[in-house]
């Protein structure tokens, strides 16, 4: 009995360690459309894995499939963390193909884009319930953070007890209001950055190592 328990213990310790080594944490990059999620995911991937994740665009719903960059190892002074970065489609409660017609798209392309977008958002919600171990929530700091989608998503993330960091992106723009983002979610840590310009990335990586290591 005692021997068996000991054996079980040591086996589970070994598997724990194997598990910890072979299964990096999956960090989902979430947020509303156009916040800069893919720009951030690409910057992380270029900085630490020499590669990109997917295309960026000023047209909303550019990302319509969750995309994963595996085994991204981030080294900070004191620690090394290995994560899988999951870039997700921007979440919304509505999609109207007519809005894409303004972006020089014909009806067929717009309808296709909207159908892919709805599938992508559904998939992103599914990932959030089943497949991520931590969340980076990206907001465009020039926009009002006080939206229903943001409130609902942060509520869903909290209800799953996932570690979460709020990124106030696009600080290079004059209208960026970091304080407004911080005030909207006072229960979480807000990190300002410009994913496009690469501003404040040291703090970004420090926080990722601290929260998801």
């Amino acid at each position: 009995m005692g021997l068996l328990t000991n054996l079980k213990d040591s086996i589970s310790k070994v598997t724990d360690r194997l598990f910890a080594d072979s299964e990096p944490k999956r960090i989902g990059i979430y947020g509303p459309p156009n916040a800069g999620k893919t720009t951030l995911a690409n910057r992380i991937a270029i900085d630490w894995a020499g590669d990109t994740v997917g295309p960026e665009s000023h047209i909303p719903h550019e990302t319509r499939r969750a995309r994963r960059k595996e085994n991204v190892t981030i080294e900070r002074n004191s620690q090394t963390v290995t994560i899988d970065v999951v870039d997700t489609p921007g979440v919304t409660t509505k999609v109207d193909y007519k809005e894409f017609l303004d972006h020089d798209m014909d009806k067929e392309d717009a309808v296709r884009r909207s159908r892919e977008a709805t599938e992508g958002v559904a998939e992103a919600m599914h990932w959030l319930r089943e497949d991520v171990d931590g969340v980076i929530y990206v907001l465009d700091a020039t926009q009002d953070p006080f939206t229903q989608v943001n409130t609902m998503l942060i509520g869903i993330i909290e209800s799953r007890d996932l570690p979460v960091l709020i990124f106030a992106n696009k600080t290079d723009l004059e209208d960026a209001n970091i304080q407004q983002v911080a005030n909207a979610f006072p229960q979480h840590e807000t990190v300002p950055l410009s994913a496009l310009e690469g501003n404040n990335m040291d703090e970004v990586y420090d926080k990722i190592a601290e929260y998801f290591g």
């Binding site: 958002v121 559904a122 919600m125 959030l128 319930r129 609902m152 509520g155 869903i156 209800s159």
Partner: peptide
């Protein structure tokens, strides 16, 4: 929150 997530989906 769980129901909201499914409602979106």
């Amino acid at each position: 929150p769980e129901e909201e997530s499914r409602l979106i989906e």
